[in-house]
């Protein structure tokens, strides 16, 4: 391999290749996968002149470091972190020209959880079912990065976008998750529904790309038992037998048998990608597309 490429010099706690995932295969048991903080992924790509579909690196808490084989434009977005090139400070949230052989390091997140590193041309690993995304539930796509791994880069797409300032609201002090009740909210008592809307939950350390787990009160069920397996959408709030809702993220299983009390619309999911364990979580019911049969709160 002699073209543009990067060598992983510091893989960090968990760094994966991500793009917009492989939607449209759920009926075969294939999870969506893809960047959990999609706006941050798209922004990183835009800063280096890539289309939003180009593959980036998604880090977890501790960042990662890469050495580029040829001079490459790189941008780091998502969770803010110190960025250096061969040890010298470089901007976060802006295109950075990294000379051939130099190391760009995205340090530990100062807040938030997942940073995105885009390289001009995008990560060029072989796509599987139309996507380069690592799917940690079923093992599709490239394995998580390891020190010393070499990843090819594609040819640069065009000039980097010239963004003067990157808007970044930053993770709030609490994670607010609007949700549409259903389809299985009737499996819970009124008390259980009120608990979801008013209870004090926190992000559990057991969270991952499959689901954001919560700690907090248990949601009281009106019906016991399991459902026959049914399709599970991205953003489902599935309630396992311990009664604590799990928010399904991009690597979630495509079917399941625990009731889904509500669904968080996709456009509200990016903040969940940045919520560190211990962050308070508030679930806010929204009106469904159709009439709901039960009232919350």
């Amino acid at each position: 391999m002699t073209g543009p490429a990067l060598t992983v010099v510091r893989a960090g706690a968990l760094t994966t290749v991500q793009d917009l995932g492989r939607p449209g295969h759920a009926h075969l048991g294939v999870p969506r996968a893809g960047a959990l903080d999609e706006p941050a992924h798209r922004l990183a790509n835009r800063l280096v002149g890539n289309p939003g579909s180009a593959a980036t690196l998604e880090t977890t808490l501790t960042g990662c470091g890469i050495r580029v084989r040829t001079a490459t434009t790189v941008a780091v977005t998502g969770a803010p972190c110190p960025v250096t090139v061969d040890g010298r400070p470089a901007p976060w949230g802006a295109p950075v020209r990294v000379p051939a052989g130099a190391v760009l390091d995205a340090g530990p997140a100062t807040h938030g959880l997942r940073s995105y590193l885009a390289c001009a041309g995008g990560i060029g690993t072989e796509p599987v079912l139309g996507s380069r995304a690592a799917d940690l539930l079923s093992g599709l796509g490239p394995d998580p990065l390891t020190d010393g791994a070499v990843l090819p880069l594609g040819p640069p797409h065009g000039p980097p976008a010239d963004a003067d300032a990157v808007p970044h609201p930053g993770p709030g002090t609490e994670l607010v998750l609007p949700f549409v009740p259903g389809p299985r909210h009737t499996w819970f008592t009124d008390h259980g529904l009120r608990t979801l809307a008013t209870g004090r939950f926190r992000v559990s350390a057991a969270s991952n790309r499959i689901g954001l787990r919560t700690e907090g009160p248990s949601l009281e069920r009106a019906r016991i038992g399991e459902l026959p397996s049914e399709g599970m959408p991205l953003g489902a709030l599935q309630v396992p037998p311990d009664g604590r809702p799990v928010l399904f993220l991009h690597d979630h299983p495509t079917t399941g048998g625990y009731p889904v009390i509500g669904v968080v619309p996709e456009r509200f999911l990016a903040p969940a990608a940045q919520a560190v364990p211990g962050t308070p979580v508030r679930f806010v019911p929204r009106r469904a597309a159709g009439p709901t049969r039960r009232r919350f709160g």
């Binding site: 939607p23 449209g24 759920a26 009926h27 026959p228 397996s229 049914e230 399709g231 599970m232 959408p233 991205l234 495509t254 079917t255």
Partner: peptide
């Protein structure tokens, strides 16, 4: 529609 996911007694349509 993005996904059509049949299951035991349901069909999920998403997107």
């Amino acid at each position: 529609v993005r996904e059509i996911v049949p299951a035991a007694r349901t069909v999920l349509l998403d997107g």
